[in-house]
């Protein structure tokens, strides 16, 4: 499929120097935006579609961003509205969560950013404590972006077996991070 966008219909300053900065910031936070949206939609394909809508709106509203404030929180606010719009316009039966559950999962963009920020240093240390084979699996899955089906094929295992291993690793990491945040509370501060 050919991908084309007619830039002539856009604001000629669409990618000026400030927008280039925004583009760099935007590229840097793509993983964060992806995680933010996935949390609310629980579906990879829908997440990717809303992520791209969010990217477009961020580009269009780039000049509304106040330099010096949190770009992540600002982008999360836009993503939040895009998720809401998506939920309104999309086929209800394809949404994973009901409105009630969606509200339960909702947090402010600032709290969302802080909840993840505070985990990253601990998570890095926790990854290093995994068994070598588990570290390798995490790297294949996350660093190298290999899909689980591909990993299963390479390792000669079923998708379910690899999925189960990843589930155990995720639980191990979650427990490790929880302990780390609890024991180092004074060090990391309460970011939430």
């Amino acid at each position: 499929m050919a991908i084309h966008i007619d830039m002539s219909e856009r604001d000629p300053t669409f990618l000026n120097s400030e927008s280039t900065d925004i583009a760099a910031d935007l590229a840097a936070i793509q993983p964060r935006l992806y995680g933010f949206i996935l949390k609310r939609l629980a579906d990879r394909e829908q997440t990717l579609e809303v992520l791209q809508r969010t990217n477009l709106v961020i580009c269009e509203k780039a000049d509304e961003f106040s330099q010096g404030s949190s770009f992540v929180a600002w982008a999360f606010t836009i993503a939040k509205f895009q998720v809401m719009a998506w939920r309104k316009s999309y086929q209800r039966e394809r949404l994973v969560f009901t409105d009630a559950v969606s509200e339960l999962l909702d947090r402010s963009p600032e709290a969302e950013a802080a909840a993840v920020d505070r985990r990253i240093p601990s998570l890095r240390r926790c990854i290093e404590r995994l068994r070598t084979a588990d570290q390798e699996l995490v790297k294949r899955r996350y660093r190298d972006g290999e899909q689980i089906q591909h990993v299963a094929k390479i390792l000669g295992k079923s998708v379910d077996v690899i999925s189960m291993r990843l589930m155990r690793i995720r639980r191990q990491l979650a427990d490790c991070v929880a302990v780390s945040l609890k024991t180092s509370d004074g060090n990391l501060g309460d970011a939430s």
């Binding site: 964060r32 992806y34 995680g35 985990r119 998570l123 790297k139 996350y142 660093r143 990491l173 991070v177």
Partner: peptide, 13 residues
């Protein structure tokens, strides 16, 4: 944690 992992290793995205 998944979001933090994506931030550390953005390959998946």
């Amino acid at each position: 944690n998944h979001e933090a992992l994506c931030a550390i290793y953005p390959g998946d995205l």
